[in-house]
C-alpha cells in the first residue's frame, strides 16, 4: 500500500553534484542514513510523504475492522481482532515516530490527514459489510502490505527500516488469522462459503491496487529505487502478490474474479507466474482523489476522535504543567 505514498512526491532537490554523489556513495555501500546525517532535500521530503502516508494507513486501517469487534462470532475471533486492531494503532505510532525524526511534527501530520492534504492507502475506502470481509482483509490486505513491508525492512533510512522490522514481526499473525477465518467459512455451510467468495470478489482488485500505479505511470519510482527507499517496483511486488495468493485461494476452493487469470510458464524469467487481467485504474484514481465509497466516513471518524479527545489532551497537559510548577516551587 505504501508505494501509493509516492504519489505526488516532489523530486526537486537543490544540492550540488558533489553532495549528491557523496550521498549516493553511502547508499550504494548499503550504509543506513540516520536522522542527523546530511541528506538531499528530496530524500527527506519523499520519506516524510511515504512514511506519513504509511502511518495514516495504519490508523485509518483500524476503522473498517473496528467495525466488527463487537460482532465477532466467537471469543477466539474477538481477541484476535482486538489484538490486530491494537497492533495497527501501535504500528501507526512507530511510523509517526520515524517520520518525526525527519523534522515533521505529529500535529502537522495529523492536521494534514484531517484536512485531506495527506493521503492514506486507497484500500481503506472500501466498506466491510460482512464478517467474511474481516478474514479477507487479513488474508489479502495484510498479505499485500507484508509484500510491500518486507523489502522496506532494508530501506536506506534507518528509523523507517527499524520500524518496519518491528511491524513485520507483529503483522505475520494478521495474515494467518485472516486466512484461517476465510478457510473456516469455506469449510462451512453453502451460505458461508458464498459469503467468503463474495468478499474475495469485492477485495481482490482493490488489493492489487494497493501496490500503486503501474511502473509505466509511476514517475517517482526511479529516484526512490536509486536511493534505496524502495527495493522493488510496484509491478514487481504486485506480481509476487498474485503468484503467492492465487494458489492460496485454490487450496480452499475459492476463485479469483478475473477471467484473464492464467498460468504462464515463461513468466518471471522462466520460473512461471500468473498473467492477470487489466486493473481498473479509473477506479483507483477516483478513490485516491477522495471519491471512494468510504472516504468521507473515514475522515469524519478520525476528526471526531481527534475533536472528542481534545479535552483529554488539554487536561493531561494542564495536570503536567501544574505538577512541574509544584516541583519547581518545592
Amino acid at each position: 500500500m505504501y508505494s501509493q505514498g509516492l504519489i505526488g512526491a516532489d523530486d526537486k532537490t537543490a544540492e550540488d553534484q558533489a553532495f549528491l554523489d557523496a550521498f549516493q556513495k553511502r547508499i550504494d555501500a548499503e550504509e543506513k542514513i540516520e536522522p542527523n546525517d546530511p541528506m538531499p532535500a528530496a530524500y527527506r521530503s519523499t520519506l516524510i510523504r511515504m512514511i506519513g502516508q504509511h502511518a495514516h494507513s495504519e490508523i485509518v486501517g483500524m476503522l473498517p475492522e473496528g467495525n466488527w469487534i463487537t460482532r465477532a462470532p466467537s471469543l477466539r475471533r474477538k481477541v484476535a481482532l482486538l489484538a490486530k486492531v491494537q497492533d495497527e494503532g501501535g504500528h501507526g505510532l512507530y511510523l509517526y515516530s520515524a517520520a518525526e525524526t525527519l523534522g515533521v511534527s505529529r500535529e502537522q501530520m495529523t492536521e494534514e490527514l484531517l484536512s485531506g492534504k495527506a493521503k492514506y492507502s486507497s484500500i481503506f475506502n472500501y466498506p466491510t459489510p460482512t464478517w467474511a470481509d474481516i478474514g479477507t482483509i487479513g488474508w489479502l490486505v495484510d498479505g499485500a502490505a507484508i509484500m510491500n513491508q518486507v523489502p522496506l525492512c532494508r530501506c536506506s533510512y534507518g528509523p523507517y527500516a527499524r520500524a518496519m522490522i518491528r511491524v513485520c514481526k507483529e503483522e505475520s499473525f494478521h495474515q494467518r488469522q485472516g486466512y484461517e477465518l476465510v478457510q473456516n467459512l469455506c469449510a462451512g455451510t453453502t451460505e458461508q462459503k458464498a459469503m467468503a467468495q463474495d468478499s474475495l470478489n469485492r477485495w481482490w482488485w482493490p488489493s492489487l491496487m494497493m501496490f500503486g500505479p503501474s511502473d509505466t505511470d509511476s514517475q517517482h519510482s526511479d529516484l526512490s529505487m536509486k536511493w534505496k527507499i524502495k527495493r522493488f517496483t510496484n509491478d514487481e511486488l504486485r506480481q509476487k502478490f498474485v503468484d503467492a495468493t492465487v494458489p492460496q485461494a485454490k487450496l480452499i476452493g475459492l476463485s479469483m474474479p478475473d477471467a484473464d487469470l492464467k498460468w504462464n510458464a515463461d513468466k518471471n524469467n522462466g520460473q512461471g507466474g500468473y498473467d492477470f487481467g487489466a486493473i481498473d485504474w479509473d477506479e483507483f484514481w477516483r478513490v485516491v482523489k477522495g471519491h471512494g465509497m468510504m472516504n468521507k466516513d473515514r475522515i469524519k471518524a478520525r476528526k471526531k476522535a481527534w475533536d472528542d479527545g481534545a479535552w483529554v489532551r488539554e487536561a493531561a497537559q494542564a495536570y503536567a504543567k501544574k505538577q512541574n510548577t509544584q516541583v519547581a516551587a518545592a
Binding site: 515516530s97 520500524a163 489532551r313
Partner: peptide, 11 residues
Amino acid sequence: VGSLHAADSTM
C-alpha cells in the same frame, strides 16, 4: 525501542 508523545512521565 522507540519513542512516543505524552504529557508527563507517568502517562
